[in-house]
Design a protein around this nucleic acid. Sequence first.
DNA 1: AACACGGGGAT
DNA 2: ATCCCAGTGTT
Length: 362
Amino acid sequence: MSPFLSQKTHSKLDISTPLIDWFEKNRRALPWRENRTLYRVWISEVMLQQTRVDTVIPYFHRFLNCFPDISALAKAKLQNVLKLWEGLGYYARARNLHRAARKVKEEFDGVIPDEPEAFRRLPGVGPYISAAVMSIACGHPIPVVDGNVLRGACRIFALENDISHPNTRKKLAELLTKQIPHDRPGDFNEAMMELGATICSPKSPDCTGCPLAHLCIAKRDGLISKLPVKTPKAPVPEYRVVVALIRDSVGRILIQKRPENGLLGGLWEFPGGKVETGETLPAALKRECREELGIKVEIGEEIATIRHAYTHFKIRLTAFSCTILDGDIRSTLPLQWATMEDIAALPFPKANHKLFPALRNE
DNA sequence: AACACGGGGAT
DNA sequence: ATCCCAGTGTT
């Protein structure tokens, strides 16, 4: 039997009243809940994608301080936007936000659209951002379905659908559309997410503090630990990576800018690359310097090795100090001889930041 | 539908 | 170590 066959039962069950009552008494004081504007809500929701509240708070303050409104963001250079995003991850969010600000300026007369159809067409605005921003900032009755809502709702309604399956999100949106109160859609959405973040956690939810425990079907049936259903992820591979620390005559270090799109797009890094199977670290670095920079290098001292984990793989990265033996540096990517001050002013990935301490006593 | 895309906190 | 996240864009 489909878990959705009992939807009639679900629609009778009113979760919004106890949920919103609880939220009014327990809502956290967060920066983006003060001085609510469409812009501030939008920025906060983009930062909050795949990212925890505590991580976002300092970034939100810095970002709003530097770019207080959509016009300031549209005028900014992408590099400066990326610098403020440095360390937050998923840098396409920053690139899309910047593009979106310019689109608002050119196509919407500088006014952020407050209708879902128009807002949804901006770069980086998908189903979640659209629902969250349009409900919280503009009062549109559109339910959000994020990880927290999926988890909470699967438990409350005892839905056994796999939350990894895209259709589950769609079905749940239909179910929640019947629950969301039209007079307080934003509060309902925030309450659902806040419940998932603070009470209905993945591992050991605090059911004794849950405002919906009395009507939660998973709790009644002892299914809390079984829900939500999710297909397990494949284990991530680990790669060896080598990078070259190449100095010029005045001690500046060679850095290069990554392509504008793709992994860590638009950020700067030390030249290097992945070690192939069966290849030694020095051999790999010589190859990378030849391929990427067109130069022959001598591999010097090993400066540091760090580990870093991404979503789909892990790396063990080793930096070698290198000297140029032959050839003129040429690259399809932007290059720069950088001082430590330059390096501090440009956006770098976290893995490179882990090398910086070793750079000083090199 | 499947995959790429960061990083940090909780367990 | 492993899992989880206030998801979107591309293919």
